[in-house]
Nucleic acid binder design. Sequence first.
DNA 1: CATCGATTGTAGCCAAGGCTACACTTTGGA
DNA 2: TCCAAAGTGTAGCCTTGGCTACAATCGATG
Lengths: 149, 149
Amino acid sequence: MKDPGEAHEAMPAEPTQARRFGKTRVAQASALLEDYAELIADLIASGGEARPTDIARRLGVSHATAIKTIARLKREGLATSRPYRGVFLTAAGEALAARVKARHLLVVALLQAVGVPGEAAEQDAEGIEHHVSDVTLAAFSAFLKRREG
Amino acid sequence: MKDPGEAHEAMPAEPTQARRFGKTRVAQASALLEDYAELIADLIASGGEARPTDIARRLGVSHATAIKTIARLKREGLATSRPYRGVFLTAAGEALAARVKARHLLVVALLQAVGVPGEAAEQDAEGIEHHVSDVTLAAFSAFLKRREG
DNA sequence: CATCGATTGTAGCCAAGGCTACACTTTGGA
DNA sequence: TCCAAAGTGTAGCCTTGGCTACAATCGATG
Ligand SMILES: [Mn+2]
Ligand SMILES: [Mn+2]
Ligand SMILES: [Mn+2]
Ligand SMILES: [Mn+2]
């Protein structure tokens, strides 16, 4: 009588499905912050600084939009910035960026491993990555290890 | 001298990356409509009708939210409804629902095929599906065919 | 056939994430 | 040195997608 999870068909599907959709909504809410963190880390690593205009250009949005999102990053404790200086990541922001970058790479690798062509893999990974849970990520990693070495 | 896509490193990364992020934003914009269409088709198939309250319950949102999104579905020509009657899909809505359902199933199958446990596959697929392009979907299909039969 | 509970619809609020327009710094080149 | 272009910031607008509160309708049951 254990395992209330998978077993019988009798339980109403509603609560399970509602929970899934809810988690998807939550995941979506952090997607943009994740991309910003990853991108800011990237810009700093490659050029020493992350300027609002560079961020905006890379994301394909207006600089006003970028600045507003940077304000949200600051509100959430992920970044710091002072007027007319660049944007910097807090420790939390750097941790997020590192996690997100690793995940991004793994998702692209997994897609390519199952036969998705390069540019499609890069394109789709940009959205997919934000919905890959730790459990799924671990499975991806195991799959790649198993088949590549 | 062909293939301006992948080759050398020299081109600026900006426009490519901006295009990717832009496409991801576009994909995200249709995600909710896709889920509604799939769910409405499901409710009609299983119970004969799709009522706003049922839709809301399955999605885990308030009925007011569901009704507002149903209004958007109607605006976009995907559904019809008259006061106090259920919601119905137009031909376009049904086509979308069918496409989305097939894609959902394929994404779940692919995830499980690479070793993602059942519930994680179902959970993550709910978000991932909206970012899987036709090219990627074809690759998933080919991968599954190759390894299962 | 009246009424009460469930369903449906409406109004108004909020935050996120886009945008344009305009104002203010910064900074490099003449 | 100074001044114009580039970058930065602010204001105000829009849509989407959440919510609660309240009003209206429907329908089952006494
Ligand atoms: Mn991304
Ligand atoms: Mn990414
Ligand atoms: Mn979905
Ligand atoms: Mn789905």
